[in-house]
Deep mutational scan, measured.
Amino acid sequence: VIAMPSVRKYAREKGVDIRLVQGTGKNGRVLKEDIDAFLAGGA
Rank of each mutant, 00 (worst) to 15 (best):
R29A: 13
V7Y: 02
V21P: 03
F38H: 09
R29I: 09
G28Q: 06
I35Q: 00
K26I: 12
L31E: 09
G42A: 14
M4F: 15
K26V: 12
D17R: 04
I35D: 00
I35Y: 00
R29Y: 08
S6I: 09
D36V: 06
V30A: 03
A40N: 13
I35R: 00
T24K: 06
A11W: 02
G25V: 02
I18G: 01
R8L: 15
V30P: 02
A11Q: 01
A43N: 14
D36C: 05
V16D: 00
V21I: 11
G42H: 14
G28D: 04
Q22E: 10
R19N: 12
G42W: 11
A3F: 03
G15E: 06
K26S: 10
L20G: 07
G41M: 15
E13S: 13
L20P: 01
L39W: 07
D34I: 01
R19C: 06
E13A: 12
G42E: 13
A11P: 01
A40K: 12
K26G: 08
D17N: 09
R8D: 06
A40V: 12
V1R: 06
S6F: 09
A11L: 02
A11D: 00
A37T: 12
V7M: 04
G23I: 02
K9E: 14
R29M: 13
K14T: 06
A11G: 03
L39N: 05
G25S: 04
K32S: 06
K14G: 03
I18V: 07
L39D: 04
Q22V: 14
N27C: 10
I18N: 00
P5F: 07
V16K: 00
I18E: 02
G42Y: 12
K26Y: 12
D17F: 05
P5I: 13
I35F: 00
V7G: 02
S6D: 14
K26M: 11
E33Y: 10
I35M: 01
L31S: 09
G23D: 01
V16P: 00
R19G: 09
R19D: 08
L39Q: 06
L20V: 10
K32D: 04
P5M: 11
D36H: 04
Q22Y: 11
M4P: 10
K32M: 12
G25F: 02
R29F: 08
I35G: 00
I18Y: 05
I2E: 08
S6H: 12
K14M: 14
A3W: 03
L31H: 07
G23Y: 02
K9N: 10
I2P: 07
L31Y: 07
G41T: 14
R29W: 10
V16Q: 01
V16R: 00
G42D: 12
I18W: 07
V7A: 05
A11V: 01
R8Q: 12
L31F: 08
R8K: 11
G15M: 08
F38P: 01
A37Y: 10
R29G: 07
L20A: 10
R8V: 15
A11F: 02
N27L: 09
R12Y: 15
V16A: 04
P5T: 11
L20F: 11
A37D: 10
Y10G: 01
A40E: 12
K32C: 07
G41P: 09
P5L: 12
G23A: 07
R19P: 02
A11K: 01
I18A: 02
A37E: 09
A43I: 13
T24E: 02
A3G: 05
V21S: 01
K9Q: 12
F38G: 02
D34G: 00
V1H: 07
T24L: 04
L31T: 13
A11T: 01
K26E: 12
G25E: 02
A43Q: 14
G42M: 15
V21G: 00
E33Q: 14
G15V: 04
I2K: 08
M4R: 15
R29Q: 13
E13M: 14
R8G: 04
A3K: 05
E13N: 11
V7E: 05
G25T: 03
G41L: 14
R12P: 01
V1F: 06
G15I: 04
R29D: 07
R8F: 15
V7P: 03
A11N: 00
A11M: 01
D34T: 01
G25I: 02
M4D: 15
K32N: 06
K14V: 10
V1P: 10
I35N: 00
I18T: 03
K32V: 09
S6Y: 12
A3M: 05
M4H: 15
L20S: 09
M4W: 15
I2V: 11
G23P: 09
P5D: 13
P5H: 12
I18M: 06
G41I: 13
A43G: 14
I18H: 03
V21Q: 01
L31M: 11
R12M: 15
K9M: 10
A40T: 11
I2L: 09
A40W: 11
D34Y: 01
R12H: 15
V16N: 01
D36P: 01
L20R: 12
T24G: 04
L20H: 10
T24V: 03
D36L: 06
L20M: 13
S6G: 11
I2S: 09
R19H: 09
L31Q: 08
N27A: 09
K9I: 09
K9Y: 08
T24N: 05
Y10K: 02
G28I: 02
A11E: 00
G41W: 13
S6A: 13
G41R: 08
I2W: 03
I2R: 07
E13W: 10
L20Y: 11
K9G: 06
D34W: 01
A40I: 12
T24F: 04
R29E: 15
P5G: 11
I18Q: 01
D17P: 06
G25Q: 03
D17V: 04
Q22N: 12
K26L: 13
S6E: 12
L31D: 05
K14I: 06
K14F: 07
Y10V: 02
V30L: 05
M4V: 12
R12K: 15
Y10A: 03
G28S: 06
G42L: 14
